[in-house]
Computed example of a mutant assay.
Amino acid sequence: MSDPNKTNFTNPSTFILLGIPGLEAAHIWISIPVCIMYIIVILGNFTILFIVKTELSLHGPMYYFLCMLAITDLVMSTSILPKMLSIFWFSSREINFSACLTQMYFIHCFSITESGIFVAMAFDRYVAICHPLRHSTILTNPVLAKVGLAIMLRGSILVLPHLFLARQWPYCRTNIISHSYCEHMAVVKLACADIRVSSYYGLSVAFFIIGLDVFFIAVSYTQILRAIFRLPTKDTRLKTFGTCSSHLGAILVFYTPSLFSFLTHRFGQNVALHFHILMANVYLLVPPMLNPVIYGVRTKQIRDRLLQLFTNKGITDFS
């Protein structure tokens, strides 16, 4: 009797996404928190964009980078959520080969972009705290535009080889992906060819991006902490550090699950598949959900503006 997971083709027209293997019976229940998280992602990030756009006092480098982060989070989560929910709700597991590669591109491109934005935000905090008098002259609007463009180009260019390599491999074993979305290694592992080039390139990019970005963030915050500890009073030190705490929280929320997911794909053979897939989803869902919450709660200007929207004063101002 033939194995239903095996097919005889070289270039599949579609892939089959299994969702979360081993937890198929719980897909409906899993979809509830997933859907709630996506709603929070949409509402939270659009709220950040609206507040920054309408409040002129927030038209500065930190908030421009925060808007870039919000847009990146919206794109990254939207690239996987609609398809994931269709798997959970309607068992709609098929995904076109080109659509799969497109999804792969958006996931990895905007993950790299998000990492770059965190570096830019760390540099902004460094200049604001260590060189406050030069902040407006260093981070001018043309400089911010160039930084934003460089961040986007870096992600776009570095991910393109993933797509070219994934498209050229022959897929003659199976078209069933044991994942809830088209993650790079989950797809290329299906190829009946030597995929070491894809694997080594993926490792190189990940270690280069994460290593370099974490290094620059660490250097920025080392200088920031040195400047904070030189401040004269404890209250001033705490207040200054408070302006950075939201950024540090967002960095930890982003890098911790992303590193776990990345390393598990290559070295976590003993990690249960369903746990790995759940963590891979956490990596793409939880940071976009928590970022607007972290910045909304920890950033006084955004918090005050948000509260104003729900008061009589806010209603009067917009009437």
Score class of each variant (00 low, 15 high):
Met185Gln: 12
Gly202Ala: 03
Gly242Cys: 11
Val147Cys: 05
Ser220Asn: 11
Ala193His: 11
Met185Val: 00
Ser198Gln: 08
Lys146Ile: 10
Ile138Val: 08
Leu139His: 03
Leu203Ile: 04
Tyr171Trp: 08
Ile177Asn: 05
Leu139Asp: 02
His184Lys: 00
Ile217Pro: 07
Val197Arg: 09
Thr236Leu: 10
Leu163Trp: 04
Glu183Leu: 11
Tyr171Arg: 12
Leu238Asp: 10
Tyr200Cys: 00
Leu212Met: 08
Thr243Leu: 12
Phe229Asp: 09
Leu160Met: 12
Cys192Phe: 11
Leu212Arg: 09
Val147Ile: 15
Phe207Tyr: 14
Phe215Asn: 04
Ser204Phe: 13
Ile138Lys: 15
Arg173Gln: 11
Gln223Ala: 15
Leu144Gln: 06
Phe229Ile: 10
Pro161Gly: 01
Phe164Ser: 13
Ile176Arg: 04
Leu225Met: 11
Gly155Lys: 12
Glu183Cys: 02
Ala206Pro: 01
Ala150Gln: 03
Asp235Gly: 02
Arg230Ile: 01
Leu139Asn: 00
Asp235Leu: 13
Leu158Asp: 06
Phe207Val: 13
Pro170Tyr: 00
Pro170Ile: 05
Ile224Gly: 13
Leu203Cys: 12
Ser180Ile: 00
Leu144Ser: 11
Asn141Ser: 06
Ser198Arg: 06
Leu212Tyr: 14
Arg237Ala: 06
Phe229Gln: 09
Ile177Ser: 00
Trp169Thr: 03
Gly148His: 05
Ser156Thr: 08
Phe164Glu: 04
Val187Pro: 06
Thr240Gly: 09
Leu165Met: 15
Val143Pro: 01
Ser180Glu: 02
Ser178Leu: 14
Val187Leu: 12
Arg196Asp: 13
Phe164Tyr: 14
Leu225Ile: 12
Ala191Cys: 10
Asp213Cys: 15
Ala191Arg: 06
Leu163Arg: 06
Ser178Gly: 04
Lys189His: 08
Val187Ala: 00
Arg226Gly: 07
Ile177Trp: 01
